[in-house]
């Protein structure tokens, strides 16, 4: 029960309070770039969840049983980015061969994810926050779900915004950023909820 409680706190915390996009500003490029249409936003979000999960499942053991064991913690950044890039390539090749339908819908987004800072961010955060393996997996799932949630919400807002008449200087990026600001403000409202979830 204790384990369940602490895992829920981590999960909801990374979905709502420390949302990777809206309050930690990780993965802003796809958030602004691929959120024009809801189906694209969902595709990107699902791919991110998948890669985050995979990356955490591989980098956590590497850090704990290889790098820490031999006092090589300083290689964290180099090793993690290599592992993520390799994993994304492997995932794409495997998917293409064995799951062509899934590859057709998600494959497009996979190469874009290698340099997505949310992925490297979540793997590094898992280590620096001192999570154990299960907590890390839950945290990465929460981060991915939070990313998906933010993408879907934002794509709906943007489709409403498309036809509106905005001042010339605000056209394009500025008004999009203002919309993101308002969504982020909504998420600020969640702070404090999860800490008191279990009394």
């Amino acid at each position: 029960m204790e384990l369940f409680k602490s895992l829920t706190v981590i999960l909801l915390g990374s979905i709502l309070i420390n949302n990777y996009v809206l309050s930690r500003f990780l993965g802003i490029c796809p958030f602004l770039g691929v959120s024009k249409k809801t189906d694209q936003a969902v595709g990107m979000g699902v791919s991110v969840i998948f890669v985050m999960f995979l990356a955490t499942a591989v980098t956590w053991p590497i850090q704990t049983y290889v790098l820490s064991e031999f006092g090589l913690e300083y290689l964290e950044t180099v090793v993690f980015i290599l592992v993520i890039a390799t994993l994304v390539q492997l995932a794409e090749i495997t998917m293409k061969k064995y799951m062509p339908t899934l590859h057709k819908s998600l494959g497009v987004y996979l190469p874009l994810i290698t340099t997505n800072c949310a992925i490297l961010g979540v793997t590094i955060n898992n280590i620096s926050d001192g999570y154990n393996f299960i907590e890390s997996i839950v945290n990465s799932l929460g981060a991915g779900l939070g990313f998906l949630l933010a993408m879907v919400l934002f794509s709906s807002v943007r489709s409403k915004m498309e036809g509106t008449n905005v001042p010339k200087a605000l056209k394009g990026l500025p008004v999009t950023l203002f919309a993101a600001s308002i969504i982020s403000l909504a998420f600020v409202g969640f702070s404090g909820i999860v800490d008191n979830l279990w009394g």
């Binding site: 809206l22 930690r24 500003f25 010339k168 200087a169 990026l173 500025p174 999009t176």
Partner: peptide, 17 residues
């Protein structure tokens, strides 16, 4: 965090104007 998005948007708008 929301202020970050807001200031960035505002600065880009000012540069454009």
């Amino acid at each position: 965090p929301p202020g970050g998005f807001f200031v960035f948007g505002a600065l880009i708008a000012i540069v454009t104007a």
